[in-house]
Amino acid sequence: MAVITVLAVLCVIPFHMGLSRVDTATVFFISVILAVSYRLITTTGDWGFAHIIFQGVGAYAAALLGKHAGIPFIVMVPLAGLVTALVGAIVMYPMLRTKGFGFFITSFAFGELIRMIWVKVKDPFGGVGGIINIPMPELFGLKLFSLVNYYFACMVFMVVSVFIMWRIDRSRIANAWKAIHTDDMLAECMGVNVARYRTLAFTVGCFFAGIAGALVAYRLGSIDPHNFNINEMVYLVIWVVIGGAATFWGPLIGVTLLTVVFELSRELEEWRPMMFGGILIMFLIFLPGGIESLLPALRRPPSEHYARFRKWLTTLRPG
């Protein structure tokens, strides 16, 4: 019921706000796909640092397909997702040997390698300049160049993607993923093929990252390697950490809240990284479970929180 209300509101608002706001909302939809798909990979315990790069793979795939092959938009976006999933599956193969922090840093290395290829290879990736003049697609005769039309296209893709990921999160597959996260040895003993399930999670996550990438490529009209750098990845991590990754809704809360904070802090632009960095540190110290763990935390007696705060204070004292 709540979902239907939110959707109804989302259908009405683009007609009642400025075009820049509509664009912000479009970016928000893309961010939602990205954050939810990132969280899907982390359910196996594989915290990567290259999700933005896979969004980039999708964006490059969509841009190249859009320029050189006249495929309709509705086919193009999932196709870009498939290309990304393929690249993800290939990259995941060597990364299966690592886990925990090793996985994190290995994914960063492979991600940077992919990004360097974009910078280095002029044909077809365009080097530092990237790909410009990506032709704007049509969908069922509607020009997606119009911001409002594109808003709806992104919204539909967001809703469908999130719904599919929500179904996956409630399926048996996701149970196997969570079992791997809890104890991979035990999961293996219970007959879960750990390597295959981890690859599956990574591939599915990459598929949706690719969809987000394709949507971002057509929103910008031109892409370059700089769009997918480490700073963007850090913001993605901040969304998921602050929202919390334990439940499906955590990243959604994180993206929504931080998009609002981001928009409100428009005048303090140069202080923004400090603000977000500070928020991240505070959350990791005082509320490591993210906002989704706030309600259970509030149910605990205040004395417990006071004890935690006291414990933190003692770490500041000398000796």
């Binding site: 915290w47 925990g100 922090f101 994190f104 850090v234 991590v237 901040i238 950490v241 990284p273 400090m274 977000f276 960095g277 500070g278 928020i279 991240l280 540190i281 990791l284 110290i285 490591p288 933190w312 770490t315």
Partner: peptide, 20 residues
């Protein structure tokens, strides 16, 4: 001292510190 034994949490907190 506050992120405990979680190496990823420590890493991400220092990413935030880098921004600061």
């Amino acid at each position: 001292r506050n992120t405990g034994a979680n190496i990823l949490a420590g890493f991400m907190a220092t990413v935030g510190l880098g921004f600061v």
